[in-house]
Design a protein around this nucleic acid. Structure first.
Lengths: 236, 236
DNA sequence: GGGACGTTTCGGCGGGGACCGTACGGTGTC
DNA sequence: GACACCGTACGGTCCCCGCCGAAACGTCCC
């Protein structure tokens, strides 16, 4: 029996409290695009007064979920790290009951772009992320039969493509990420982040507007078909 | 940019709210032993009035985190499933700042037993869980180099031991679980649960008292040394 | 310097929820 | 049937916290 003075309960509750508010949850979800937002942008996004946002952001930073960077009169905020991003993603995946179609046209348009491809903190998700993951799996570079791991041939492939896989700290090389639109896992972890950086750096995909949506370029369609046999039609 | 009417935020907040209370968090952590507790037991454990516990349990059940089973005048409660257990574990792991030694002697004694071996919902954790995971890894049955997956030899080993690995639904065959005492991942998922069941059924380990602590029996020490080369000294 | 802008601090309001005690219904036991 | 026991419904209290507006501070630009 756990001792009644187990400090884990209060700490778990404190952590959950940070995400237990609609405004703070909206902040964290928005920041899942992996980039830095200003306090004002977040306030407008969540439709609350700047003063309200300021308080919330103070708590999220104090709680270690976000980090801040002051530049002049701006306060830039981002998710504190991959572990936090993973946590929020995981929680969001559990919160989503099932496939529920969006209602408004604008939401439908936005969610269509997001469903096609987007960043999920530092890796790719949406149909694009899934297509990459499936292609790696089909070609025997990634094994999902008995877990989730790169094969030896997969390691070679990353090396051939010139995609470095420097392991930093305790972060896993690969990790499945189950996001809340697709219901299948896609590639995350060090390799997922490296692959995302590589596609963006090569100009194979680009960000759309200011959000987390991304789209594959013409060069990208060619490269992905050549190197991974991905049918461009899937990505549209 | 995510639409402002994205329903994910409110749902995420609602889910987090369920764990954002010390009493409810204590309930969920206690139930992580994987067994059913009565409402009264949980109330005493968390030091709240029965009526208070009843309200909390109602919310947790309504929110899908717990399931209930009525038997006579008792109300038995358990974690709703592996996904929920995983979620709570994950959150608890993030909530724990770092290795902080317990203060009271009773807590030290209890946490010592828990550190040696315990169930983590349906698989084994603590030094025992870690020793099993490490042994499987050292013998090339489990690969952690490029992800987390059973090897072909690992699949054979489970078969030889007569441990069935029936996959149910979408649950992964293996999954790393990072709990909050050890800082290294141990084996979870279908295989982790099957291994735990096998050890308990074979009498190689038994539960201590009414909690989630387990200890290895003499038979178990022999079997684990023979089959996985585990030094019994590690488990003490 | 002046003015626009981003952000923070503070006071105050309002609502939700965590808690308890009490009373009550259902269940098992003598 | 009387009694202990487990769980629940209800009323009431208290406190926390999410929100805003107003005012102030710092920064950037002209």
């Amino acid at each position: 029996m756990a001792p009644d003075t187990d400090p884990t309960g209060p700490r778990l509750a404190a952590l959950a409290t940070l995400l237990a508010d609609e405004t703070r949850a909206a902040f964290c979800l928005a920041l899942l695009d992996g980039r830095a937002w200003t306090a004002g942008e977040l306030a407008r996004h969540a439709r609350v007064a700047p003063s309200t946002a300021s308080e919330h952001l103070g708590r999220l930073v104090a709680g270690g979920l976000l980090t801040e960077e002051r530049q002049g009169r701006h306060r830039y905020l981002r998710i504190a790290g991959p572990a936090v991003a993973h946590l929020v993603e995981d929680l969001a995946a559990h919160a989503e009951p099932s496939g529920e179609p969006p209602r408004t046209l604008r939401a439908a348009g936005a969610s269509h772009a997001l469903a096609r491809g987007r960043t999920c903190y530092d890796h790719l998700a949406g149909r694009l992320g899934l297509a990459l993951t499936d292609a790696l799996t089909d070609r025997g570079l990634l094994s999902q039969d008995t877990g989730f791991a790169l094969t030896d041939r997969g390691l070679d492939w990353f090396r051939e493509q010139g995609i470095g896989l420097e392991r930093t700290g305790r972060r896993p090389l690969v990790r499945p990420c189950l996001d809340w639109t697709e219901r299948k896992p896609h590639l995350a972890g060090v390799a997922g982040a490296a692959l995302c950086r590589h596609l963006l750096a090569s100009g194979w995909c680009v960000r759309i507007g200011s959000g987390r949506a991304v789209k594959v370029t013409d060069d990208g369609e060619l490269a992905l078909r050549e190197r991974l046999g991905i049918d461009p039609g899937i990505l549209r």
